[in-house]
């Protein structure tokens, strides 16, 4: 797939937070086969603690997708995006503007406005949004080439709460890259996302908080491949009644 002109073959975008150790983070990134990792910006301490993490991540050679996590307004998100562009040297920004404290739902009104401001300023915006079609339309008009609908609240691991809405998004935006961002808990959720026609999945907690993060990173990668292959193989439609799969022709009468 082409993300703002960059060819990416892996369908997994991996977050870098909450791992048991930097070593396990590095191993999980490798095991996942991902080509894009997400990062954030936080207040620096005078001992330069942020630089150590950045060195670890840079050594992986992956594409960096900085986020605006924790921002609650257009102004905060725009300033954070500019700071991220300078530090990471990328025009990519995962635009995240939180609108609700409990479910971390995106503030889609601020999101559209920030997406417009940043796109006009040369940023390539990856908006964390809902599955709302109208919001999706407005984000595309604002300059986005990618939409990242949530599957469930961030960090909840509930899987896809509204598969019908994601299916509708796929139908409504046939040419737009759709990445499920947030809510994936298990490999089966990742399979489902790909079967619904999503182009990729962005996840973090599902891997970082698994008992074996490296093993789960591998499992997620396999799941994405399986779901995508299944989608391309055009699955059968469910039927209400049983239909024998074994031929009945020539069946012996033994009763």
């Amino acid at each position: 797939m082409q993300l703002y002109g960059t060819e990416i073959s892996s369908r997994l975008l991996l977050g870098t937070a909450q791992y048991p150790s930097p070593a396990i983070l590095t191993q999980a990134i490798e095991a996942s086969g991902c080509e894009i990792v997400t990062v954030s910006l936080r207040r620096e301490t005078a001992d330069g603690s942020g630089a150590g993490f950045w060195d670890v991540l840079r050594a992986t050679g992956k594409h960096i997708l900085p986020n605006t996590a924790g921002c609650h307004s257009v102004a905060e998100a725009v300033t954070t995006a500019h700071m991220a562009r300078e530090i990471f040297g990328t025009r990519w920004i995962k635009l995240e503007i939180i609108g609700h404290a409990d479910n971390l739902a995106p503030d889609v009104f601020a999101l559209v406005e920030a997406a417009r401001v940043l796109s006009e300023d040369g940023f390539q915006v990856f908006p964390y949004t809902t599955d709302d079609l109208v919001v999706g339309e407005k984000l595309l008009t604002a300059g986005c080439e990618v939409l990242m609908p949530w599957g469930a609240p961030i960090g909840s691991g509930q899987g896809l709460r509204t598969p019908d809405a994601l299916r509708a998004m796929r139908a409504h935006f046939p040419e737009t890259l759709l990445i499920v961002d947030a809510g994936i808990g298990r490999p089966s959720d990742a399979v489902q996302a790909m079967e619904l026609g999503m182009d990729a999945v962005l996840l973090n907690t599902a891997v970082a908080k698994a008992g074996d993060p490296v093993g789960m990173a591998r499992a997620m990668s396999l799941a994405l491949d399986a779901g995508r292959a299944g989608r391309r193989a055009d699955p059968m439609e469910p039927r209400d009644m049983a239909v024998p799969s074994t031929p009945v022709l020539g069946l012996a009468e033994l009763g």
């Binding site: 977050g15 870098t16 937070a17 909450q18 791992y19 983070l25 997400t38 990062v39 954030s40 910006l41 936080r42 207040r43 620096e44 330069g48 603690s49 942020g50 630089a51 993490f53 950045w54 991540l57 900085p66 986020n67 996590a69 954070t80 500019h82 700071m83 300078e86 530090i87 990471f88 961030i154 960090g155 962005l202 973090n204 907690t205």
Partner: peptide, 26 residues
């Protein structure tokens, strides 16, 4: 404030300075 502009920016009493660095994120 871009890196190139830091040397030219004059601080004033009460300014709020934020210094951010790379951090783990999802």
């Amino acid at each position: 404030i871009p890196r190139d502009a830091r040397a030219d920016v004059i601080l004033a009493e009460g300014d709020r300075l934020e210094v951010l660095a790379p951090m783990q994120g999802g």
